[in-house]
Computed example of a mutant assay.
Amino acid sequence: MAHNPESIAKQVEQSGESGKGLPPLDKWHPELSGDIDIRITRDGQWIFKGEPLAREAIVRLFSTILRREDDGHYYLVTPVEKWRIEVEDAPLLAHSLEVKGQGSDQALYLTTNVGETLAVGDEHPLVVGCYPDSDEPRPVVKVRHGLEARLVTAAYYDLAEHVIERKADDGSLVLGVWSDGNFYEIGQGS
């Protein structure tokens, strides 16, 4: 059994799926191997046994084999093992925003801390909620397999520059942004 990041990475590489795009996580259903001392901090650092994971390549690989299951827990999954890890907030961060086009025809693109670019749309919707017991906004984009990427403050401020006010179906005014033909509500208007 793998008890460290290097051996987990080796299993994925030996599966023959490494380097072929995203691993087929939806086809991998091993039994729980246990908990592994990996924690993703709110600021996006991957910590193993109290120390940051030193190899960026492993962090990138792990971001492709991570999923959140219906029990609310996060797991690193290989073809033969499944390890529960701790995630303090969202496992990924969206740190830059690119906007193409204007108005209802615009498209928003977010780049994550692991170098993946997500097109905000049906596959990667934007959701702006709040942290529990707080009015602090929690803007996230859905990634895959139950994962989210939280927009860092700078990306959220960049997003705010493209917010418009629009009348909702019930006649109230809402604030939001357009991307890929969808309107994503982020708050109440005046």
Rank of each mutant, 00 (worst) to 15 (best):
W83N: 06
V87H: 06
V174A: 02
E81T: 10
A9H: 12
L175R: 15
G21K: 15
E31M: 13
P91E: 01
T111E: 13
D170S: 08
S172L: 09
V143L: 06
D43V: 04
N182L: 10
P23E: 01
V77S: 04
S134A: 14
E185F: 03
L66D: 07
I65Y: 10
D71Y: 09
D158W: 04
R150H: 06
D35T: 10
R144I: 09
A2Q: 12
S96T: 13
F62E: 04
P137R: 08
K10G: 00
G146S: 12
L97H: 01
D180K: 11
T41M: 04
L151A: 05
V128D: 06
V12S: 04
S104H: 13
H162Y: 15
L97W: 01
V59D: 01
D122K: 14
A119P: 02
T112S: 07
S15A: 10
G187H: 04
S7A: 15
K20E: 09
E13N: 10
R39W: 02
G103Q: 01
L151C: 03
G103H: 04
I164H: 06
T112E: 02
G101F: 03
D71E: 07
E148W: 12
L93G: 05
S33K: 14
S63W: 13
F48G: 00
G44A: 04
F48V: 02
V12I: 15
G129W: 11
R60T: 11
L93Y: 09
R84A: 05
E123H: 11
Y157E: 13
V152E: 14
E116Y: 13
V99T: 10
G44C: 01
S33T: 15
P23I: 10
G103M: 06
L175A: 12
A149I: 12
S63N: 14
Y109V: 01
I36L: 09
S33W: 09
G16E: 10
A9I: 14
L92D: 13
M1H: 12
E69R: 13
L151N: 02
R60Y: 08
P23Q: 01
P79V: 07
E56I: 08
H145A: 15
E6D: 11
M1N: 11
G19Q: 11
V99A: 06
S190M: 13
L92A: 06
K82Q: 14
I85Q: 08
I38Y: 13
D35G: 07
R67K: 14
R39D: 01
L110K: 08
R138Y: 11
R84G: 02
G181H: 06
G187R: 05
H162P: 00
T117A: 10
G44W: 08
V114W: 08
P139G: 02
L25P: 03
E56G: 05
V114C: 03
S96Y: 02
D43M: 05
D158S: 15
V141Q: 07
A94E: 00
E51C: 00
Q102N: 13
Q45F: 08
E17G: 03
S7I: 11
E86I: 12
Y75P: 00
V163K: 02
D122T: 15
K82H: 08
D180F: 06
L118V: 11
G176F: 03
I85V: 08
D37R: 15
T64G: 02
A168C: 05
R166P: 00
Y74A: 03
G189W: 07
D37Y: 05
G176V: 03
K167D: 08
T112Y: 09
V59M: 07
I47S: 00
P139H: 14
S104W: 14
E136F: 13
E56K: 15
K82F: 09
G187E: 04
D133W: 10
